[in-house]
Structure formats: structure tokens, C-alpha cells
């Protein structure tokens, strides 16, 4: 199997789907001639032409709205938000239009909205956010957050083939920093299924995105201290794989929920609530969360480091929880 970067996996997923299905097309800012701000769609316009890889104006409402309209008629658009933060400009189109068209009108909206999210690249307050929680609270959407090249490609293919609007947040810190083997043959990663990235008996870490890698590092540290950690990668935030979360926590009796997103009212709160309600009898310690503080994402490296959860912070929380 060839080794590919996370970025290449996103790209390969889209390219293969576009080759497979003519109704798939890409639209977004600078995605065509320039090949995307992060070069994810480099070479696409040459291969698929201007009518399937479309440079749009800086108009997120129009980008998502046009994608919705074409999806209603059976096309399968992939709309790129150049940075996930910019998705706020298209909020109404996503949460009021795409999310509710099927429920209120019975019209399916098969589309993907993808955006590079996350911090660690010194992008500052408007180029570093993790906006998945905004959309996880909206019935009618699906939200995926791959952490590895394998998942990035498989979830992209699943998202394109899904009949509902899927928000696909790819972590830009991982783009060129991680690389792993990805099958050449066609495969998908099912939406709504978590994946145990590390098996363990003493404590469960429930996490996703870039924090999967920080959690795995923390788990190695704890292994040296005699604590056997399990790392569950949620992969999909909505719909959440409740079964996988509960199975893991029932086995280990301890739950550490790790998100890069800020602490309050986020995905971590939902996961913690599920565990508290449905695995209460199995718990040997408090459900514990590690997350960014409730602040915007700062620019200066010392501030950004202080903001971001990392392996050390996760390990510290794990030690406290392990002591119960």
C-alpha cells in the first residue's frame, strides 16, 4: 500500500469520486486555477474542467446556496470553505436550508461542505477554530472529523455518496505532518462509526481529529506508568457512535473526553452526558474533560500553546483520573 499524507488522502478521495461519478463537482474560492489555498485541489481543473472545478467569488452564502440548489436536482457538490472559520458566513444556508430541506419539504440535499479547521499553525482567531460543535447541534446535518489518511479518504468517499448534507472538517495541522498507508482499491469509512485507535483496559479516551494523535502519545506515556489506555476515535460527530462510546467505557470504567474545541457546550459535553446517563453503574471515577479554555484562539505561539490541549495536558488529566 502506498503511503500518503493526510492532505493527499483528502485529495485522492475527492478525485476518485469525481472520476467515478460525473455528478460530483467542486466549487469554492481559489479551488480551480490556483488549486486551493492549501493546494488540496491542485490539478483538478486540468483533469475535470472548469465546469466541475469552479472558482467562485468570496461569497460563502452563494457557494453553499448554489451547492444546495444543484444538489436538489441530483448533482453532488463538494463546496470548499477556504478556512473552516469562514463557514460562519454560510451559516444560514447550512443550518436553516441544507439541514431542514428534507424534513420540511422531503427534498434530499446530497452535498459535502469541507473546510480546514483547527489550530497549531499560528493562524490566529479567524483561521484556527474548531467549528464542529456549531453544526453538531443541528438536526439534519452529518459532521465528520477524520484523524488519519485512511479515515480522511474513506470518510470523503462516504460523504460524497451520502444522500444528506455532510460537513467534513479536515484538520489543517495534520495536512502534511502525518503520513500512512492507504489502500489503492476503493473503500469507504462508514459515517456514524467510531474506531478504536488503541485498545486498552484501564481508561477510555474519547476524542477525534488532531487530538487523536495527542491522545495516543499520552497513552504511550501512561503505559510506562502502568495505565493501559484505550483511545476511541469518534470520526463522526453527528450522528455519534453511542454504542462504541458506551462499549469502551463499560469495559474500562473510566472516561476521559478530549477535544481541541473549547470546553463549554461542545461535543465533549454531549459525550460526557451520554456516558454519565447510560454507563453510570460502570464508572469508577468522574467523567473528565480535557479541552481548550473558553477563549478565542490566540495568535502568539506561547498563547496558542497554552490554548491547545496536548499530550502533556491529557496525560496529567489521565493520571488524576487513574488515581480513583
Amino acid at each position: 500500500m502506498p503511503e500518503v499524507t493526510y492532505l493527499e488522502a483528502v485529495r485522492d478521495g475527492m478525485r476518485e469520486e469525481m472520476r467515478r461519478d460525473e455528478s460530483v463537482y467542486i466549487l469554492g474560492e481559489d479551488v480551480g486555477v490556483y488549486g486551493g489555498a492549501f493546494k488540496v485541489t491542485a490539478g483538478f481543473q486540468e483533469e475535470f474542467g472548469e465546469s466541475r472545478v469552479i472558482d467562485t467569488p468570496l461569497s460563502e452564502s452563494a457557494i453553499v446556496g448554489a451547492a444546495i440548489g444543484s444538489a436538489l436536482l441530483g448533482q453532488r457538490p463538494i463546496a470548499e470553505m477556504q478556512f473552516a472559520d469562514f463557514i460562519a458566513c454560510a451559516f444560514d444556508q447550512i443550518v436553516n436550508m441544507a439541514a431542514k430541506l428534507h424534513y420540511r419539504n422531503g427534498m434530499a440535499v446530497p452535498m459535502v461542505i469541507r473546510g480546514p479547521s483547527g489550530a497549531g499553525t499560528h493562524g490566529g482567531p479567524f483561521h484556527s477554530q474548531s467549528p464542529e460543535g456549531w453544526f453538531a447541534h443541528t438536526p439534519g446535518l452529518k459532521v465528520v472529523v477524520p484523524s488519519t489518511p485512511y479515515d480522511a479518504k474513506g470518510l470523503m468517499k462516504a460523504a460524497v455518496r451520502d444522500d444528506d448534507p455532510v460537513i467534513y472538517f479536515e484538520h489543517k495541522f495534520l495536512y502534511r505532518r502525518i503520513k500512512s498507508e492507504v489502500p489503492e482499491e476503493d473503500y469507504t469509512v462508514p459515517i456514524g462509526k467510531a474506531d478504536v485507535k488503541r485498545s486498552g483496559e484501564d481508561m477510555s479516551i474519547l476524542t477525534y481529529g488532531a487530538m487523536v494523535h495527542q491522545s495516543l502519545t499520552a497513552a504511550e506515556q501512561l503505559a510506562g506508568e502502568g495505565v493501559d489506555m484505550e483511545v476511541v476515535d469518534l470520526r463522526t460527530i453527528l450522528p455519534l457512535d453511542r454504542t462504541a462510546i458506551l462499549d469502551s467505557v463499560k469495559k474500562t470504567g473510566k472516561a476521559l473526553v478530549v477535544t481541541e474545541d473549547t470546553l463549554s457546550y461542545g461535543v465533549g459535553a454531549e459525550v460526557a452526558a451520554i456516558i454519565s446517563q447510560d454507563a453510570f453503574e460502570y464508572l469508577d471515577g468522574p467523567v473528565t474533560r480535557v479541552a481548550a479554555p473558553d477563549t478565542p484562539v490566540p495568535y502568539a505561539p506561547p498563547l496558542e500553546d497554552a490554548f491547545l490541549p496536548n499530550a502533556e495536558k491529557i496525560a496529567a488529566a489521565a493520571r488524576q483520573l487513574a488515581a480513583y
Binding site: G65, A66, I68, A71, G74, Q75, Q93, M97
Partner: peptide
């Protein structure tokens, strides 16, 4: 009739997408 829209103005971009679909097809 592809819907009535009670968020003022939200359907104009969607109309563009529907029209784009006709063009592509």
C-alpha cells in the same frame, strides 16, 4: 415548485444552484 423560504433572501443562492443544474445537464 422547489420550496417556499421563510428566511428572507436565503433562496436566491439556491435558485442559482438549481439554474446551474439545468445548465450542466
Amino acid at each position: 415548485a422547489y420550496g417556499s423560504y421563510a428566511i428572507v433572501g436565503a433562496h436566491l443562492p439556491i435558485a442559482c444552484g438549481i439554474a446551474w443544474s439545468s445548465k450542466v445537464r
